[in-house]
Design a protein around this nucleic acid. Structure first.
Lengths: 224, 224
DNA sequence: TAAATAGTGTTGTTTTTACAACAAAAAGAG
DNA sequence: CTCTTTTTGTTGTAAAAACAACACTATTTA
C-alpha cells in the first residue's frame, strides 16, 4: 500500500522497516482519513482515543478560550503527530483543535496501543518508543522557543524573535513561514493590525522584507 | 545511603526498587551536590553532560536575553528533572540557567547513560524509559499551559489564567505559588509594578486575596 | 539589635498596544 | 471572467502597559 512509504518518513516510525510497520498496523488499529483545507480534523474537547499522525499536508493547532478569541499554538507538517503529548500524559480529551491548513492525509493510531507496547521483545517496539521520546523532547524544545517569543514585551521583539528562530531552523535568511498575517498575529498573541503596521515599519527601515508567507531578514541576526 | 530513599520518590525512578537504583548508580555515574538558596546550580550556556535531578528543595529555570532582561520559565520541585528535554533532544548546552530558590540537594546523572540504556534486558530500564516519557509529556503539558497564560492580552487575564491553573492543580481556592511578586512578573512576562497594581485592584474588587506567596480566589472560577 | 538588602505597593508620565473602521488587493467560487 | 470572500495595509483613538522614581515593609546579615 502506497501509504506505508509515507509512514516510514514520519518521526515516530523513523528507522522502522516497511514490513515491520505492516506488522504493527493491526496491533495499532491504524486507519486513514482525508481532509480538505480549512476542515476540522479534530475539534477542541473531543475524547482522545487516537494519536493523529499527519502523512500529507499541514495543520494548525488552535485554541479558543471562553471569550471566543482564537490563538494558534503551532503548525504541524507531514511526519509530525498531534495528541502525542496529551496521550503520553494520560489525558482523556484533546485540549485544542486541529485544523487542516492544506489538504491532509492523516493516520489514526490507537493511543493505548502506541504508548503501552505489547510485551514481546521485538526491537521495533523499542525503536518506536525511542522515537516517541525524541518526538516529545522536540515538542518541548519547540514550546520553549515559542515561550521565548511570547516573553518579549514589544511586538517588534516578538516578531523578530520568531523570524530569527525560523531563519536559524531553515538555515537561511530567506525562508517561508506557515502562517499568513492573521495567523501570525494569532500565533504571537498580538493584534493583527498592530502586527501589520509593525511589519510595514520594519520593511521601510530595511530590516526585513516579505511577500505573502515568504520573508527575508536583511540585517545581521545578532544585531537585532 | 539515605539519598536513595529520596530517589525512589522522583518522577523518573518511580516504581524502581531501591536496590535496583543502587545497581544503576554506577552505570548512570550519579553524583550528589548541595546548593544554598539563590546559588546557581547550572549557568546558562553550560555544556550539557548531566541531567540534574532535584532531590530536595526547589529551583527556578531562568533565561536572560541579549538585552539582559530576565524571565522565569518555570519552578521545579524535588522529584523533577532539569535538562531532560534538552538531553533527549540531543542538545549540547543548557539553554537556560537553574537557580536554587531554596537550599537544594541535586543528583547528577550522565545524560548519555540515562537516555541510551545499556542493552541488557532488565525491566527497570524499561520502567525508567517509560517514566522519562511521562516526564517529557508532563513538561509539554506544563508548557502548553504556560503558553495559554502568556497568550492572554491583558495583565489581569494572564494573572487570573495562571492563578486558576494553580488552583485547579492544587485542588483548592486557597493555594501557595512558588514565586514572589518580582518572580511572578518575570514568569508572566509583565512589568512588576504593573502586576503589583493589578493585583491590588483585584484585591480591592474582592476577586482575589493574597499574602506573600499565598493566594485565595474568592469568585467562582468559571465566572472570571 | 542595628544596618543593609530585598521585596512590595503607589503614582505619574511616556510609550506601546488594542480596537475599530475602512479601502485596496488577492484569492477563490460559480 | 465576474462576483464574492478573504487577506492585507492604513489610520486615528482609546486603553493598557512599560518605565521610572520613591516610600515603606520585611527579611537577612553582621
Amino acid at each position: 500500500m502506497e501509504n506505508f512509504s509515507l509512514i516510514k518518513k514520519t518521526q515516530i516510525f523513523d528507522g522502522v522497516e516497511e514490513n515491520d510497520v505492516q506488522a504493527m498496523a493491526h496491533c495499532f488499529r491504524i486507519r486513514f482519513r482525508n481532509y480538505n483545507k480549512n476542515n476540522v480534523i479534530s475539534p477542541q474537547g473531543a475524547p482522545l482515543e487516537d494519536v493523529i499522525l499527519l502523512l500529507k499536508g499541514s495543520a494548525n493547532i488552535e485554541n479558543m478560550d471562553a471569550t471566543g478569541s482564537v490563538s494558534v499554538l503551532m503548525n504541524i507538517k507531514a511526519g509530525q503527530c498531534y495528541g502525542l503529548v496529551e496521550a503520553c500524559h494520560g489525558d482523556e480529551c484533546y485540549s485544542s483543535s486541529l485544523i487542516a491548513s492544506e489538504n491532509c492525509l492523516v493516520m489514526l493510531i490507537a493511543k493505548h496501543r502506541l504508548i503501552n507496547p505489547c510485551e514481546n521483545k521485538c526491537p521495533r517496539h523499542l525503536t518506536v518508543i525511542k522515537n516517541i521520546m525524541h518526538s516529545l523532547a522536540s515538542r518541548g524544545m519547540y514550546f520553549m522557543d515559542k515561550i521565548n517569543h511570547l516573553t518579549k514585551k514589544k511586538i517588534r521583539e516578538k516578531v523578530l524573535s520568531y523570524l530569527k528562530s525560523q531563519s536559524i531552523r531553515q538555515n537561511s535568511t530567506y525562508f517561508d513561514i506557515p502562517y499568513n498575517k492573521t495567523e501570525l498575529a494569532e500565533y504571537l498573541a498580538v493584534d493583527r493590525s498592530a502586527l501589520s503596521s509593525e511589519l510595514s515599519k520594519m520593511k521601510a527601515e530595511g530590516i526585513i522584507d516579505f511577500d505573502k508567507k515568504h520573508y527575508h531578514i536583511k540585517r545581521d541576526l545578532d544585531s537585532i
